[in-house]
């Protein structure tokens, strides 16, 4: 893990994501309580917390994989509601990387990356393939383009998943525990790709347990527990001087 600190986010006022008074229920279970969050363009946010605290649910609400029942979510100035046109626009600008990779097993790596640009962005195949190869080179596996996901290692699959999302040219990337399903020796290769992305100014929201990564890359660390945001701070202050007793408890368990 690189020791040099990443440059802080630009001080622009452009707001990428805004969440106001958001609540979500699963049936009777109140899973997200009064979430208020503002994310500026270029910010890198890490969300951590104990299992079941709702952190995955929170980021899945941001691209409507889950629906919220109360409050507002604004992405790129568009409100995220039942309006299908809004959802479409927002999903084009948010890329998501899953814990289980979710690559399409019946398509090659290259086809995985080209699918959405061709069918959603309506790009010609040649253009889509060029873009895909560029991103596959960035994640350092251009030689695997014609292989199938089943033929790749976990680390390679996750890097393909990142490339696939990047091919849609999003300005925001969501990561839902991207390294939790990987063998230890493969975690670094994926984290390196994510650090590169952060370096280039991508707005990133990452749910993770990798605290080393948080210290290196994050502008802000958010701690959640039982559906609420307990504390948020810059990494140094967060790790050395947690304000809440809950945060302190959590940190003592993982560090």
């Amino acid at each position: 893990m690189t020791e040099t600190k990443i440059t802080p986010a630009s001080q622009g006022n452009d707001i990428a994501i805004e969440v106001k008074g958001m609540h979500k229920w699963y049936g009777e279970f109140h899973v997200l309580k009064d979430i208020n969050l503002t994310i500026k363009r270029g910010e890198r946010i890490i969300i951590c917390g104990p299992s079941g605290c709702g952190k995955s649910t929170l980021i899945r609400c941001l691209n409507r994989l889950e629906e919220h029942q109360r409050g507002e979510i604004w992405v790129d100035g568009i409100e995220l509601d039942d309006n299908l046109k809004h959802i479409e626009k927002i999903r084009k600008d948010i890329g998501m990387v899953f814990q289980q990779f979710n690559l399409f097993p019946h398509l090659t790596v290259l086809e995985n990356c080209c699918l959405a640009p061709i069918w959603v962005l309506k790009k010609p195949r040649r253009e889509a393939e060029e873009t895909a190869m560029q991103y596959l080179e960035r994640v350092k596996i251009p030689d695997q383009a014609d292989k199938y996901p089943g033929q790749l290692s976990g680390g390679q699959q996750q890097r393909v998943a990142i490339a696939r999302s990047l091919c849609m040219n999003p300005s925001i990337m969501l990561f839902d525990e991207p390294t939790s399903a990987l063998d230890p020796e493969m975690i670094k290769e994926v984290l390196d790709v994510m650090v590169d992305l952060a370096n280039e100014g991508m707005t990133m929201l990452c749910v993770t347990h990798e605290m080393g990564f948080a210290k290196t890359v994050a502008d802000r660390v958010i701690f959640m527990d039982s559906g609420e945001i307990i504390e948020e701070n810059d990494p140094e202050s967060f790790f050395s001087n947690p304000q809440s007793d809950r945060t302190k408890l959590f940190l003592s368990q993982i560090l």
């Binding site: 994989l65 999903r91 998501m96």
Partner: peptide
């Protein structure tokens, strides 16, 4: 698996 649908939706596929 449901993850396939989610990945496709996340990419913007209807």
């Amino acid at each position: 698996s449901h993850g396939q649908t989610e990945a496709a939706y996340a990419l913007g596929l209807r």
